[in-house]
Amino acid sequence: MVLDLKLRTQLDIPLEAGIISPDRLAGLTESEIARVPLIHGNRKKSLGDFFDISGTCDGEIRLVGDFTKVKSVGSGMTGGRIIIEGNSGMHLGCAMSGGEIAVEGDAGDWTGAEMSGGRIVIKGNAGHMVGGAYRGGHMGLQGGEIIVHGNTGNEAGNSMRNGLIVIMGNSGDFTGANMFSGTIIVFGELGIRTGASMKRGSIISMRHADLLPTFTYSCFYHPSFLRLYLRRLRDMGISIDDAQIEGGYHRWCGDSMELNRGEVLLFSGSPGS
């Protein structure tokens, strides 16, 4: 059965709602759910103070309303499914290790930060630090997938160590900065300073981009691994051109300030173009 949570009120003050996750709410009755504590600003409140609750959760939660000010939904979740029919707030699915979150609207900053498994799909745009690490830490996305159909802010995949981030729109500056490993695929424009301080990992762009002076051009080639990724995305219903699968890519390696084992692949239909 699906648990429906409908946000009743218009929020100015953020709600700390890490509790909204199948892990925490599964098996509870409606009245028990209504009493589950959460923090509104600096006060302890209950879920029932803010949400119309119907149904129970056996793995799936549907959230209706504008969740922009609701933080940390699905954080640390290990399985199940959350659907947000609207926008989501900061820290969506941060540190999650399994399950799936789908957002119809936009997502906030730190979406999927430090997550280690599962999948987040954002239909709209997402904020800064998607799949990133929190300040001072060096443990960004460690596994799982984040797919953003719109644009993202700066530092997508900061310090990521594994997993996949797909951005169908544009990404901001410092995409994949401090990256240790993993894959970022951007279909729109890349911001500047892509891959700064990256050690390993792949950043793929379907558009041209200027790279830092510490990146070196290696070659134009047809990376076979990428075919796997793109076909996999196509299977998920994302539209991918044949040319992007069949075509060639310019490979740049860097960042020579670090291990120099990372790569930026820039799509180019044919040699030299």
Partner: peptide
């Protein structure tokens, strides 16, 4: 110089060779 990739829980190796990479 080999590169590891993980997709869907599956791990691949990209081994640099003279025509590109062996996956």
């Amino acid at each position: 110089y080999q590169i590891s990739k993980r997709l869907d829980g599956r791990r691949f190796w990209r081994i640099p060779v003279m025509d590109g990479e062996f996956l």
